[in-house]
């Protein structure tokens, strides 16, 4: 059976072109009409932007906004997109929308725009990222919720206008231990993305044995941070130092198990037990060939059991 014909296939094989200059009359998109007039939509038909990263809208601020709306009216209509018949989603203006609800109004002036899910996500984040009042942790969480809308992280970074490396710092929060994430939920400003990335890096470097020490060091550091006794930029080095100290202490205890052999007060070798294994070293020329063979035999018999 012949292969089905597709537009993408024909373009790919070069049979048709998709970049001709002369084009046919265009269909105007919804946003081509948008800037003209605001329309009144029932509040009941409007939903918040599902990608909105801001989860807390302080009552005081809303009341203030509501008061100003009662006083002078709404200066700027909110921006919405149509999602289905009689259903709209807010692109920008959730605070104004909430204030209108607070005032028990039934309708709000809106301007219609067309926007894809990708657009919605990017607009919600981009609008908030540029503002000072959203924490890095909140931004990281919202990036995470929209990540699946993008084919790759590179595209995601492009859409948000981030440097790729900078975006990976936001992803560092995920690698943090659970107790810290719980603390961040309560206090999102606890750690900046740079501090989170540093902590992630230092935790990743730890071996399995070291990680326990690192975790307790982290717990200690966070307690200090909460008490404002340490700067968040210092946490990573704090952990590293603790781990190094602990490792050195351990090496010291192992050193005690190093036993030297003496021959007429002269060190001629040692027995060492460390985490790497057992080591017996004997200086050259101390043992005769017979003794060497005997030692070998003892060891050989030892393992033969």
């Amino acid at each position: 059976m012949k292969k089905p014909i597709t537009v993408s296939g024909l373009v790919q094989s070069g049979v048709i072109q998709n970049n001709l200059n002369s084009t046919l009359p265009q269909f105007k998109s919804q946003s081509d009409f948008s800037n003209q007039i605001a329309i009144f939509l029932p509040l009941a038909q409007i939903q918040p932007n599902p990608y909105q990263p801001r989860s807390i809208f302080p009552d005081a601020e809303l009341n203030e906004l509501a008061a100003s709306i009662t006083e002078i009216g709404l200066i700027q209509p909110i921006a919405v997109r149509k999602v289905s018949d009689m259903a709209y989603q807010i692109i920008a203006g959730e605070r104004r929308f909430r204030a209108f609800k607070l005032l028990s109004k039934t309708e709000i002036p809106c301007v219609l725009f067309t926007a894809t899910d990708e657009d919605m996500a990017v607009m919600a984040i981009a609008e908030n990222v540029s503002r000072q009042d959203l924490s890095d942790y909140e931004i990281a969480k919202s990036i995470r919720t929209v990540e699946s809308l993008f084919p790759s992280r590179t595209r995601l970074a492009q859409a948000l206008g981030f440097q790729r490396e900078d975006m990976y710092r936001y992803f560092a929060y995920e690698a943090l231990p659970l107790f810290l994430l719980e603390k961040l939920e309560m206090n999102p400003r606890l750690l900046s993305r740079n501090a989170a990335a540093d902590i992630k890096r230092v935790l990743n470097k730890m071996s399995a044995e070291q990680s326990e020490i690192a975790l307790s060091a982290l717990t200690e550091a966070i307690a200090l941070l909460e008490a404002a006794q340490i700067d968040q930029t210092k946490i990573a080095s704090f952990i590293a130092t603790r781990v190094t100290q602990a490792t050195q202490a351990e090496t010291a205890t192992l050193n005690i198990q190093k036993q030297h052999f003496f021959l007429q007060d002269k060190k001629i070798g040692h027995f060492l037990s460390s985490e790497k294994g057992l080591e017996v070293k004997i200086s050259a020329g101390v043992l005769t060939d017979e003794k060497t063979t005997e030692l070998k035999k003892i060891l050989d018999d030892f393992f033969r059991v």
Partner: peptide, 11 residues
């Protein structure tokens, strides 16, 4: 092919 090229370039 010409028509399809025009169509895809336009829409």
């Amino acid at each position: 092919k010409d028509a399809l090229s025009t169509l895809i370039s336009s829409y």
